[in-house]
Write a protein that binds this DNA or RNA. Structure first.
Lengths: 361, 361
DNA sequence: CTGTTAGCGCCTTCAC
DNA sequence: GTGAAGGCGCTAACAG
């Protein structure tokens, strides 16, 4: 007596008794036997394509039995057969960041709407974990992938491209090969920020960030440097402080900056956690915002207005990024031909608050 | 010519030419044919159990070929066969909360260490999504589940228990059936907080929270009410404000409280986002902390010290919660017998900052 | 219109 | 020590 037969007999018994044990998972075979048709017929009815031409009578019988047994197709068996799973993955470097969490949440909600399962993976800014996650998810049969990659390696991404696996890159643009890409205008917005600060009279402008493993940060620094060069700011390199992704790192960077013999009159901070550290340092040193120093921060967190001094922030269109990424991914998943890759550049938003002052020379 | 044969021939060709196309995924069959053994032999070697007794010679040949072809067992086929997948899921109501994100991150890192894949699902505090997520994940063959459930329904959880599926509940204790459970001492810590405020002379203490769909919040309210009853606080019910999980909701709740004819002299706030809203309201009304009102907040975010007034906070042992949950889950996944369920109660931490003042009567 | 057959890639008896 | 056979649950060609 095989397992399946036992299972079937169990169903049979309970059906005769009028009970229905909905938790026991029925298979195609079970449904087929109880209805008295071949499993493939049930399969056809389940999939419900028009051109299968099943008679209304048997179709109805099958549907009723499907409902009775609470039959649901086994996604694993289906994935093994079809190499399709109605699921996608997103790999982000830090689930604790409101930016990445917001993107993941947006995509998660939309996936739920369209009947896809989303698997979220956090790589903790670790390149090795990212590679493992890509490998693991693809081997587990996801249909597509959204990745916000960390900086160093790109071989695993390149492989995805070579295999024509559908994927979308968030927050990073590769130079030497094409991908679907969603980025923000970090360079431009940073450039404009410096320009704005210069227009207020600032000549020494600091820049504090975490690790250099994320593309947007490099772009911000590029924007900063472009502006510095154009507007003749001196010592710009010495005013750029990079460290780790931690409060302490932000704290230390800020302390170093403000204890210089010629400290900056304004600081641009990159990242939520770093901002916490910078503010901690300013409080500690009794440096008031914006009287003693102007501050503007890249952060997508909600609390910036309620800090001990409301901070002017640069934020991302988090929801749009998520939606665009998913839309693009779905187009590539659903297209048979080799769809051309696309790149979207979304704008950052600046929220002016009273953390920036004019400098009187 | 079947697909598999073609694939094999391709390998054969490239191997003869000395090339190795590592991206093409090899199967057991491929390895077997190239080595000249039966697939089942390869399978045995791969799984590497002692009692298989494969000769060292063939084992070595197989290992070499496995490496050469970069063979990795297909997790989907394996899952179909074994009903085991070396993966687990975590379902959380809000990935945007530092509390849940922190738990997920801790578990994610640990899973990576022990060779399990973690799938994170965000339900957006939506009961229906939670049910779908539970169903979806289990059907996709995860070996175990960690859930921080929202409040209303519990049938889907009960089903897991009845099926003896390994799972751990975070942040909720069911009354009428047993589960593995990790909770914090929210009731006690809230009780003690009120007691502390009373000891400082406070007699009207407000409580502001988001939705009532999370167990810890109900426990906090219970602790609040216990203390209110014990210490003879009046009108406690009228000082409890619940709403939505949004800044606006916190804002409105706070405005309502402080514009009462007898406003509270202290407020306990539950949740990060709600706290943002409350502080926004206090700023708007020019109510200073702690001179005009004392504030203490449940939040696991990092920024509380840097708010316009540093806030006394109650935080969770986020890392411990994650690690305990995973450890417990793994014990249940790996045990053959019916392991007894466990419940762990972890303590909250109170971080005193200058947001609380003594009341002079 | 529906049944039969043949796998997807793997593991697990049962043989020899 | 290893091979052969069967099947996890499903779908896709091919019949009829």
């Amino acid at each position: 007596v095989s397992t399946t037969q036992t299972q079937f007999q169990f169903f049979w018994k309970i059906l005769n008794e009028g009970y229905l044990y909905i938790d026991m998972t029925a298979t195609l075979k079970d449904v087929a036997k109880l209805v008295g048709v071949h499993p493939s017929t049930v399969s056809r009815v389940i999939r419900g394509k028009e051109n299968f031409d099943i008679s209304a009578k048997t179709r109805d019988k099958i549907f009723r039995m499907v409902e009775k047994l609470n039959y649901q197709p086994d996604p694993i068996a289906r994935a093994l057969r079809l190499k399709k799973s109605q699921s996608i993955g997103i790999i982000i470097p830090n689930i604790n960041s409101p930016y990445f969490a917001g993107i993941a949440k947006t995509i998660s909600n939309k996936c739920d709407e369209i009947g896809y399962t989303l698997f979220i993976c956090d790589t903790d800014e670790d390149q090795e974990k990212e590679i493992r996650a890509v490998n693991d998810l693809t081997r587990r049969g996801i249909d597509g992938l959204i990745i916000a990659p960390v900086q160093k390696a790109d071989l695993h991404i390149r492989e995805l491209a070579e295999k024509k696996f559908p994927f979308v890159i968030i927050d990073r643009k590769f130079n030497d090969f094409e991908t679907n890409t969603i980025i923000s205008n970090d360079l431009e917005v940073t450039y404009n920020t410096v320009k704005y600060l210069v227009s207020l009279g600032h000549k020494r402008i600091g820049f504090i960030c975490g690790k250099l493993n994320l593309y947007p940060i490099l772009r911000r620094i590029a924007g900063y440097k472009n502006a510095a060069a154009e507007f003749g700011l001196k010592n710009d390199d010495l005013l750029i402080m990079c460290g780790e992704l931690s409060i302490n790192s932000g704290f230390n960077s800020a302390i170093k900056l403000v204890t210089k013999t010629s400290p900056p009159t304004a600081i641009i901070v990159s990242g939520t956690i770093i901002t916490d550290g910078v503010i901690k340092a300013l409080i500690k040193r009794n440096i008031s915002i914006p009287d003693n120093i102007s501050l503007i921060a890249f952060t997508d967190s909600d609390y910036a207005p309620y800090l001990f001094q409301p901070i002017t922030t640069i934020t991302h269109l988090v929801e749009d990024i998520g939606l665009e990424a998913l839309k693009l991914l779905m187009e590539h998943i659903n297209s048979k031909e080799n769809l051309a890759y696309s790149t979207y550049v979304l704008k950052c938003e600046v929220h002016l608050r009273k953390s920036i002052a004019r400098i009187s020379n």
